[in-house]
Structures are given as structure tokens and as C-alpha cells.
Design a protein around this nucleic acid. Sequence first.
DNA 1: GTTGTATGTGTTAAAAAATAACATTATTTG
DNA 2: CAAATAATGTTATTTTTTAACACATACAAC
Lengths: 263, 263
Amino acid sequence: MLFFNTYNHKTCGDSMNQRQQELLDRLNRTGRILIEEEAEHFGVTSMTIRRDLRFLEKNGLAVQTKNGAIPKPKIHAAPLNIAEDSAVKRKIAARLLEMIEPSSTVLLSTGTTTLTFARLLAQQNLPLTIITNSIPITSALFQTRIKVILIGGELRTNSLDLVGPAAEKYLSEYHIDLLVTGCDGADAQQGFYTSDLNLANLEKLSAKVSDKVIVITESRKFGRKALVKFAEIVDVDAIITDNRLKAIDRELITRNGVEIIVT
Amino acid sequence: MLFFNTYNHKTCGDSMNQRQQELLDRLNRTGRILIEEEAEHFGVTSMTIRRDLRFLEKNGLAVQTKNGAIPKPKIHAAPLNIAEDSAVKRKIAARLLEMIEPSSTVLLSTGTTTLTFARLLAQQNLPLTIITNSIPITSALFQTRIKVILIGGELRTNSLDLVGPAAEKYLSEYHIDLLVTGCDGADAQQGFYTSDLNLANLEKLSAKVSDKVIVITESRKFGRKALVKFAEIVDVDAIITDNRLKAIDRELITRNGVEIIVT
DNA sequence: GTTGTATGTGTTAAAAAATAACATTATTTG
DNA sequence: CAAATAATGTTATTTTTTAACACATACAAC
């Protein structure tokens, strides 16, 4: 028989009473509770339930809504929301959607623009296989007809995605019809940039195992260079961006034989 | 230059106006908006903002709260909540926490009881490395001191976890201090069961690469056998369960030299 | 036993928020 | 342009939430 040491890690020091425990259970089970219903169920006044909900909210376990509460959203935390899901991105995503061939295998890289696209995909009913290294994208696509394969690796906590040698090794065994990726910076002559070295390596490999490559990005990314270049302009087959792209950039790209689509 | 076909996949047919678009953007950016603030920002009455929020809620993009709204939780969807996070599980998790050695590497398998434990871990400040195949567990642990490694594989949409040959291959290269896993069924003489063949294979391999194995499970799982056995009783070093475990089961387990802890 | 303190709950009145119904103003459309 | 339609504003009413206090219960000290 093995021996396990015991450690005195302090457990959450609140002191929930029995009713609050059960209230939280019911909340998590149903996804939503109503004050009046719970008051009746527990045989207490609605005021008491209100106080309980206030307590749960204070402890980060629930969010109070109109006549009740919902569980505290668990993944949808701050850093991921920044600049996410703008109208510009939704337009770009809608344009990309028209170019997706049913039943194909698409590698969808991490990023907020690709995430917007994934959310759009989730509303369609396309038969597709999506390979991704992004947890938010995976989350967006679950419970759809889409088959999802998530590349494993080390978690980057800011962007909730997976990178590193393990991810590369994993990816190297696949063959992809279409790579869709965003970028942190772009230059009409130099190519595409990202701010993470690990991610850049993964992107390079992704392009290598894919038949076609499409970059989707807001035009404001052009002119900004980030830390690491991961692709030349000529490495990609098409770029989708918004209509504020400078004419000169547009011409430079076209001259390289790369299709550029503005929304 | 490549040619891309265009397909007429129908895009979400709502027709949001400009203000609603921007409202949604602001909501996603900040994680929360207040009606009065937005009314002032857009130069409209609060009534108009209320109508907008009602619209966004109807379209599944937001949830109305007290004086405003939050973005619709994106991952925290129905199937995962069932029976999750009960008081019994929280007790078991708290007991397990005491046995966790700081700075160790723990393989935390998919499951609702292990998820409860992960949520508890997230509130501590322990230096740990957690390897898991569960997206909810990964989500629970991000933005903590814990280093998280997610095993890639094919997504099981009901449980939001990753299994399959790719996952096994990925795992086989690691060495683990402690495996923590749950089960779908247990028998004091026969061992532990799960209802998915792929997962069973992964569990077997997990036990093989781990120094110690702890099973955490509600006592009601005892007596239920599920589809596939993944471990014998003697394969594990300790079992943590609640105090409603039958005396006979407890004795049978102890007789096998396995430590059993009831909360 | 009483007394005091703390905690939880109920009750009520007041404040705030949400709604419905209708008036008004823009926007389309023929 | 005029009619029709949609969007927004206004107001009165209803509903929800809050704050403040009253009551009860439990526990400890004396």
C-alpha cells in the first residue's frame, strides 16, 4: 500500500449553507433558475433566494439575470474578447464562407478573425472536417455536423490555443485541403507576421501540409510588422480583407499573382 | 493564380442594424454593458437599447442581466452541466486536493468529477503541471499558475474531450507522477468501467505511464458496470468516494490493499 | 436561568427597472 | 408625392429589486 502525504491547501473559505449548495447544483444542472420557482421549491421567501444569488454572484459562481440567475460563464473570460467579433470580421468571414467547399478538410488556425469565421460556420449545416489548435474555435463548433480535430500541445493562456513541438509533430501527419489563417501583421511586399515564435513555426508547417492557403485579416493589419514572419505573400493563394486596404497594397499583391478579395 | 469556387451558403438571416452590430461589438469587447451607458453613447433612449438587447438575446448573442447584458456564454452548453459540480463531488475534490504534491505532474482525465476538482484547483495557487484530454478542464485552469498541456485528438462532442489513436500516441511520450481519473461504473471486485472504448484505451495507457493512480468517484457508481473495463481494483493506489459506500464494498477494496478514503 | 451577540430570515415601504401601449418621427416603396 | 412600414420616443403602469428594520433562533458568557 502506498502512502500519500496530505497537504493543507486552503479550500475556498466561504461557507455556503446547504440551500446555497443545492441552489448552485440546480443552477448548474438546468443552466438557469428563476427566483420565484426556487423560493417555492425551498419553501423560503424570494428575498432569501435573492440574498443567496447575491452571495453566489459575489463568489463568482453565478450571474444574476432578470428574474433569476445563470451559471457564471466559465471559459468566456476577458482577454479573449478583446476586439473579437467586430462587424468587419463578420463581413470577411461571410465572404470566406462562400469559398468553402463542402466535405473538405480545413485547417483553421488560431485567431480572432478565424474564430469569427468558426462562429459563422457553426450556424451553417455544412459537412466539413475542421482541424484547429484553438480551443475557442473547438468550442464554437461542437454540437454541429462538423467533425473537429484538435491539435494538442502546450496551452497559451492568453489566446487559449495550443502550440509547441508536440503540436507540430501532431500536425505533420495530416493532409489538408485548405488552410485558413489570420495574422498579427502584414506587408504587401514582405508577407505575413505573427508575434509568437512557436505559433510561426506551426503556421509554416501548416502551409506545407495544405493544398491551398487563404489568409483572412482586417486591412488595418497591413503596414504593421510583428515579431516573426511566417509566410511570404506568394505562399498564399488568396487574401480576404476589408475595403479599407490601400490601393497600392492591393496592386502590389495582385502583381504577385495572389488573389485579393475585399468585402 | 488559383481559382476558388463560390458557394451560396446562407449566412445568418437576421438583419442587424448598425447600432446593434456595434452594441454587440462593445459587449464582446468589454464583457458587459449597461443600458444607461449605451443609451448615452449612442444618443438614443434606454428603451431603444432595451429593444436591441431583447433582439440580441432572442438571437442567442447576449443574455440580459440587471441593468444591461453580458455576452451569451459560448462553451458552457447544455450536455456538460448535467449532474456536474454537485456537493458530493465538491467534497471528494476537496479531499483529493489535500493529497496533491506541489510541483508535481498530474494527468487529469476527462469527467465531471475531475472537472469539479479542476475548478477547485483553479482557486488555489499551486504550482503544478496538468495534462488532460478534457477541454472543460483546460478552460477551468487557464489564467492560473498551473501549466496546462492538452492532449490532442478527435473531439467527442457530448463530453468535449479528445480521444483516439492520435491521443494515445501523444500521451505515450510523457511520464506522469499521478493519474487522477473518474469512472462511469465500478465494482469492488471487478474494477472500473467506462462507456467508451476509445476512452478506455486511453485510460489504460494513462495508468501505464503514471507512477500513482487515484480514482475519484461518487459511491453511487459502485455496482453499476459500464461498457468497458479499463482498470482492476489493484491497479489503483487509492480511491476517494463519499460516505455512502457500502461497508462490504469498502472491506473488499481494503482487503486488496487499496487505500479507500471516504469523505 | 438570563443576557448579549451574531446570524439568518421575513416583512414592509420605497426605489429602480422593465413593460406595454400609444404617439411621433424616419424610411421605404409604389 | 403619398401611403405604408419600420424605428424610435413618451408616458403610465406593472414588476422587480433594494434597503431598512423586525423577528426568531442559536450559541456563548456569566
